[in-house]
């Protein structure tokens, strides 16, 4: 087997057209969590902002946060999306120790906002339009701290600590359509896009919606 050779960036751009899809997670700055009344204050002592609902105790049931839904609608409108007149949450089932119920309450086939766009000003003065596939509401997981391993990951760790303060904090996930035609501006334009998303959320006019931390995952492909 021959060793793979690393192709030069300029050559890549010559041979391929980069296509990127972005998933931007914006954490809402609501006072309480998405499905219970626990506070969302960042940096509190571990496991002090929890209750039967966000710990997923047997018998507990979620009640949706009205301000969270309002914020999602405002963000959807700021992204020029269509707002669904009716919605529901779904369960994303998978096992992980920092997920109290071993499913994440999220929106699946019926997101609150669909089909919008975002105009992103670039450094050269041009404006690049990014099409928005959808924006949906979901809850965050808890946090794991893996101790004793070389990588900080669960594999190889000696033990793990779990903090459920973040479990149930409201998130808005914004998903773009595949972004094509950015060429060599691809990396820069995508950083811009995710920042623009976050700014857009912050200025969506929601009384409590300000982005504290936005996380962005890019799915690059090429053609």
């Amino acid at each position: 087997m021959t060793a793979p050779t690393l192709v030069d960036y300029a050559e890549v751009l010559e041979r391929f057209d980069p296509v990127l899809g972005l998933e931007v997670h914006v954490e809402l700055n609501t006072q309480t969590k998405m499905f219970c009344g626990c506070p969302t204050t960042f940096g509190a002592e571990p496991n002090t902002q929890v209750c039967p609902v966000c710990l997923g105790l047997p018998g507990a049931l979620p009640v949706v946060n009205r301000i969270g839904v309002e914020s999602a609608i405002r963000i959807g409108l700021a992204l020029n999306c269509t707002i669904a007149p009716w919605g529901r949450f779904a369960r994303k089932n998978y096992f992980y120790p920092d997920m109290p119920k071993n499913f994440q309450t999220s929106q699946y086939d019926e997101p609150i906002a669909t089909g919008g766009y975002l105009d992103v000003p670039l450094d050269d003065g041009s404006v690049f339009r990014v099409e928005i596939e959808r924006a949906h509401m979901e809850e965050d997981t808890g946090k794991s701290l893996h101790v004793g391993g070389a990588t900080g990951r669960i594999h190889g760790a000696e033990y793990s600590l779990l903090d459920y303060n973040r479990a149930g904090v409201p998130l808005i996930e914004i998903v773009t359509k595949p972004v094509v035609g950015t060429g060599e501006r691809a990396p820069r334009s995508h950083v811009r896009t995710s920042r623009r998303c976050a700014t857009c959320c912050a200025h969506s006019g929601s009384p409590t919606c300000a982005w504290t931390r936005a996380r962005c995952a890019a799915t690059p492909t090429s053609r």
């Binding site: 369960r91 089932n93 119920k101």
Partner: peptide, 27 residues
């Protein structure tokens, strides 16, 4: 049921059987 009973994983309450080194094995 399969979704509702997923939470019984020994991480927070109830029975815990230390049947291995990893979280998955304990679950």
């Amino acid at each position: 049921v399969s979704s509702n009973l997923a939470r019984f994983d020994a991480m927070r309450y109830g029975l815990r059987v230390d049947g291995g080194a990893s979280a998955e094995e304990v679950m």
